[in-house]
């Protein structure tokens, strides 16, 4: 993984977060963001952002961080 690639992923998820944050409801926004990423991101991209969140995660917005946490949880069928 290159720095640039990670930077882009961070930028993308933060952008998704800010576009779905409505009246500060971070919990709800995180749900939407996690669903969006599950639906549209490739496996490798998901893994990279999860790895980043677990190792550092400093550049993730609050909503993004919450969303990645949900991604990392095993999904119910």
């Amino acid at each position: 993984m290159s720095d640039q690639q990670l930077q882009n992923l961070i930028k993308m998820i933060n952008q998704i977060s800010i576009n779905n944050l409505h009246h500060g409801d971070e919990d709800k926004a995180a749900d939407v963001v996690a669903t969006h990423i599950r639906k549209f991101w490739a496996r490798s991209m998901k893994q990279q952002i999860i790895d980043y969140a677990e190792s550092d995660g400093i550049e993730l917005s609050a909503v993004s961080r919450l969303a990645v946490k949900r991604l990392a949880e095993p999904q119910e069928a």
């Binding site: 290159s2 640039q4 690639q5 882009n8 639906k39 549209f40 991101w41 490739a42 496996r43 490798s44 991209m45 998901k46």
Partner: peptide
């Protein structure tokens, strides 16, 4: 699982 989009492919 979804695949890569064009900009993701470039990255």
């Amino acid at each position: 699982e979804p695949g890569l989009r064009i900009p993701n492919m470039f990255d």
